[in-house]
Amino acid sequence: MTAYRYDYEVITQWIEPGEKVLDLGCGDGDLLRHLMQVRQVQGYGVENDPDKLLASVKNGVNVIQMDLEKGLVGLEDGFFDHVIMSLSLQAMHNTQGILHEMLRVGREAVVSFPNFGYWRHRQSILNGRMPVSESLPHQWFNTPNVRFFTIADFDALCEMNGIAVRERLAFDEGKLMLDEPNFLASVAVYRLGRNG
């Protein structure tokens, strides 16, 4: 098992027992494994990295090789109860496309991402250097991240795309931040649905 990630706790609370769950960018399958154990979900991971795919198979979870940049072609509308993307959205080019796809195949989407507007990140920029932190562990020259956005940016994107923010929790290194999350939180976890 890799280090326990605190967004898992939040995500788990939003999943009902026995749900059909799709985990995009499932890595070594730890979240799915956890959800299978505590929520008895029928879960499927999606990975395109062969090493992570292998790790998921070793972990005993269902994993499907797919390039998320091409969407979720082949999956039926509304099949899943929840489609999860944990700390991967910032590493995708087709941001709007994948959000649309998640809400096409899932009743709800769960998305977590590092907040580039976190005060330590802002401070780092003010000091003239790109931020490196627990939530942004890479250097600018080797980061897998390709989209750099804040909680406020994401809220605006949801608004623009008619995506309903049903719940949002923001954390500072594991501690829930209720006030000024865009300034004080390093990671945000969203529960999203379709408007109307």
Partner: peptide, 21 residues
């Protein structure tokens, strides 16, 4: 192969799929 995978998935069957380069 993906047709098989999705058909199984939509039946809630356990399935893993790899596309080997």
């Amino acid at each position: 192969s993906r047709e098989i995978v999705y058909a199984l998935l939509h039946n809630k069957r356990n399935v893993s799929y790899a596309e080997i380069d």
